[in-house]
Design a protein around this nucleic acid. Sequence first.
DNA 1: CCAACCATGTAAGCTGTTACATGATTGA
DNA 2: TCAATCATGTAACAGCTTACATGGTTGG
Lengths: 175, 175
Amino acid sequence: MQLTALGYALIGLVLGEPRSGYALRKVFELTPMGAYSSSPGSIYPALNKLVKAGLLEQRAPAAGGKKKFHATPHGVREMNDWLRTPVTQEEVAKSIDLPLLKFAFLPMAEDVRVTREFLSGFEAAVRAHIESLESYLTGPEGQSLSPHGRLAVENGLLGYKAHVDWAMRASEAFK
Amino acid sequence: MQLTALGYALIGLVLGEPRSGYALRKVFELTPMGAYSSSPGSIYPALNKLVKAGLLEQRAPAAGGKKKFHATPHGVREMNDWLRTPVTQEEVAKSIDLPLLKFAFLPMAEDVRVTREFLSGFEAAVRAHIESLESYLTGPEGQSLSPHGRLAVENGLLGYKAHVDWAMRASEAFK
DNA sequence: CCAACCATGTAAGCTGTTACATGATTGA
DNA sequence: TCAATCATGTAACAGCTTACATGGTTGG
């Protein structure tokens, strides 16, 4: 189905705990999830789209109170499919944020193996990307790079190496 | 004026060396600048917009050959203003890519002090962001975080710490 | 009572993506 | 000559941002 980052973030959040649209906005405002944006103009239309697609539904809780968004079985399935899709090098090259969002929601898969598989795939994808950056630097293009350009690429490399270290340490925690 | 990342990338590239639209596309296809996207559908309209805004112009080189994009004086001024605008914590929180693009183009400012100021501002902005992530983790919200959520935030922290290390090392190189 | 917060949306505009279309040049 | 590459675009669509609009509730 291929949702947007915001779509996955919304389903993942209500899977953890059903919430109103407003409560979801607050999460983006007040936590590091803020990177996945915010503001009524994006969240409410996104929620309505997910409802139309049959991935979420709005239900009033049994004990009264206001309506909250819940994931439908279809939404749960969609999320599980996504969680089990291995991270690719292209994804990592584009932005590390989406893979990390996925990681944050892995407990919803209710199976440690999914976490383990994510981490090994993530590590491999990041390592592959590091290699491509390194071969760019040692290749003809990289040789003619300005000092600033080279440093900028090296900054990227350091960041990706930090991700590898993290993946290795996290793997220990889920062994 | 506030251009998009692609806009700054295009001006910066032709400042280094005048190029055709096609040559610019190749840069995005074949180098780590690929993160700033690509493909005719975005580059050609962006170039035309920059021409309309008076920041670029298309000129045929004296010795014949095809037309290439050059930066106008206005374009140069716009770039210089941008290069000298200090990086903010909000920018860093949103994405580290734009600040790094700026760094890569700092030689165009033709003054090492601009690089030094960038690096100290960058480091400060990243450190501030690290502190806000850390206080989130130690605060009430962070205490109730799932192990996965906590690890995801810690991944971010490691990445930002790598950026600080890089900034300190780079500062040495421009002292 | 009034400010702050709860709560949900719409509309205009900008950017970018994907896919399609066109035609020139060049090397095997 | 034919495939690849050079070279430049357009059109439909998706997504997000900003700004605006609306009204209810609650605590000082």
